[in-house]
Design a protein around this nucleic acid. Structure first.
Lengths: 119, 119
DNA sequence: TCAGGTACTCACCAAAAAGTAAGTACGGCT
DNA sequence: AGCCGTACTTACTTTTTGGTGAGTACCTGA
């Protein structure tokens, strides 16, 4: 029950891809990691205003299982864990780019607000 | 409460796009409509094995609200309603294509099964 | 006459996803 | 001594999502 009940039979490629990106914060995590290269847990948390620690851990674990992110643990005294995109994570991000462009256009069309995030 | 509580402030374009595609069957509806051009309600239902009438109606309504699909009602005696993609629906589908390709690759990688659908 | 097809709506229920709040082990800083 | 920060885990609750099955109004074909 730790991981998700996914990887099921898919209707098509989009279905398979959506399975992996589904989750309130997953695409944002992807973006954050792509943008910053490597991030620590607390950095991600701060970069994603509103995310709960539980969801962040959960999503990161699933994305690790799905081969999208790499988790590097440093056995140090204040714990340190670094997350980064794997090759598959990078290619997924690239595949997501046109969708992002479409979404940006849509935001302009409907005049949607943007969540303010500071780098 | 009929429609969805969406269109909220978005973090980025992907967020905005995902909002519109989120839902178990939406991407499949998009694909079905793109593939066949125009489809009646029952045709869609038959093309999406496993979808419930409730969800199909609900998703179609939301997609109509979001300007992705066009709903043409013929006031005839056995009711007839035709659904087709709008310009925005078509462009969303195009933006989804690379994601679909990525997903297809992933299916091959992990050896995921495909749901059997007959045309 | 009666099942079957059209395109739905409605009420109810189950499951999944996400949020909340607390706890944990350890050290540094003040 | 006491609080902050690290990176989590755990239990519990709420919200959201999706599924089930019935009902509707009308017509067609067997």
């Amino acid at each position: 029950m730790a991981s998700s009940a996914r990887r099921g039979p898919y209707f098509c490629g989009i279905d398979a891809a959506m399975d992996v990106v589904a989750g309130k914060w997953k695409s944002l995590i992807l973006w954050e990691l792509h943008h910053h290269g490597t991030r620590r847990f607390a950095e991600l948390r701060r970069g994603l205003p509103g995310v709960s620690e539980k969801m962040l851990v959960q999503h990161l674990r699933e994305m690790e299982e799905d081969g999208l992110v790499h988790r590097e643990v440093y056995r140090e005294v204040p714990p340190k864990v670094e997350y980064s995109l794997t090759e598959h994570g990078v290619s997924l991000n690239a595949a997501l780019a046109p969708l992002g462009a479409w979404g940006t256009e849509r935001m302009a069309r409907i005049g949607a607000a943007k969540v303010s995030v500071d780098a």
